[in-house]
Design a protein around this nucleic acid. Sequence first.
RNA 1: UCCCCGAUAGCUCAAUGGUAGAGCAACCGGCUGUUAACCGGUAGGUUGUAGGUUCGAAUCCUACUCGGGGAGCCA
Length: 429
Amino acid sequence: MQSILIKHLGKHVGEEVTVQGWLYNKRSSGKIQFLIVRDGTGLVQGVLVKKEAPELFDLAKGITQESSIRVKGIVREEPRSVGGYELTVTGLEVISMAEEYPISHKEHGVDFLMDRRHLWIRTPRQNAILRIRAEIEQAARDFFHQNDFTLVDSPIITPAACEGTTTLFELDYHGEKAYLSQSGQLYNEASAMAVGRMYCFGPTFRAEKSKTRRHLMEFWMIEAEAAFFDHEDNMKLQEELVYFIIQRVLERRRKDLEFLGRDISKLEAIQLPFPRLSYTEAVELLKSKGEEFEWGQDFGAPHETIISESFDAPVFIHRFPAEIKAFYMKPDPEDPRVVLGADLIAPEGYGEMIGGGQRIDDLKLLEQRIEEHKLPREAFEWYLDLRRYGSVPHSGFGLGLERTVAWICKLDHVRETIPFPRMLYRVYP
RNA sequence: UCCCCGAUAGCUCAAUGGUAGAGCAACCGGCUGUUAACCGGUAGGUUGUAGGUUCGAAUCCUACUCGGGGAGCCA
């Protein structure tokens, strides 16, 4: 069946076309009906006048919300109609009549909608978010491809914890214990030694009982790792990636941002380079804002919000105390108390968007750190091999996709940034 | 794991110790340009579960269940 997408209707003014989709809404008076059809690319209004097409008119009267339909009609420009175009209906076919649809056009609560997430994603608002998410994913892939990074997928089932810190989902791997990956990072380092510059993009899993608007049990991470990149190169790469993503979304998904009510000027105002603040400077900033804070403590979510609200762009906090960061972080040669790592904090209180840094490339030091962190050395032998066979300075980072989407769309919860969120106490549907 | 909050019609909510109600959705009818259309009508309830206080509980108390927000941890 030849049909056209609603987004392309403007190219067919005056022609008779067929649109296939679902009945989004219907309004009627005695002699005229308006059928609003959605197909995932937009909405269009079909008009039926009783005296001109009495049989179609009666058929339309019985069509329920979300029934799948095929509508033939002549395309007209019509400013009164959603999307600016309208179909004068000349043919109408019901593919499948929907039962009474649970999601109405009135307000609903989060619990109700989350239980019906498989239907909720049909709504225009959720459609817009999913399109922006897709655009961000595509932009990241394009960015890395253009910058000579090779996509190297990392495993999802892993034999041991990557960093030995967070709680992992455990699996029975044919009688052995295995875990769902919390990060591809260690594997990425191996891949970077193979192809020089690599990135990976996949789901990651955290079993912590986190219950906030910034957390999911299953989330997607865009990770990159590059040989011969130092800490400064790494931050530069991160800000260029984020900037590229913003520009791409502004260019290609502006309508969706507008539909969501996003204040676009805040995204347009973002410029390179992003502000950089050392941990020590960040502590001073917090103190100047009246916060009680000791050097050596880790930042909590409220601290990150205070820091991010002091800047209009995402802000790097770099050179954290070694004690509060992962074992593989390279110490700063100029001040060994701190490591050459940075977190990128999103504006407007969205929290940490990227975590990354330069990795230890010295075998002896890495062995020492594994011991200090009481990690099972056998599990890391292959990782130590990377320092035995042609070790080089290298750096990498991981960008949390859902937090990035939440910030760009200015949503109040990450659960709307992913089609089927996995949250504490919620794995259905 | 801890702290706070919530659960009443299919949905969103009201009823603050005294006869459980409204709007929307559904169904029936009306309306020739609707924009979450509008107007009239019909139907719809073991007030999350269990117990307690009381002449009387949706309302007060206890426990439980489910969920929401936040902390910690993190992206």
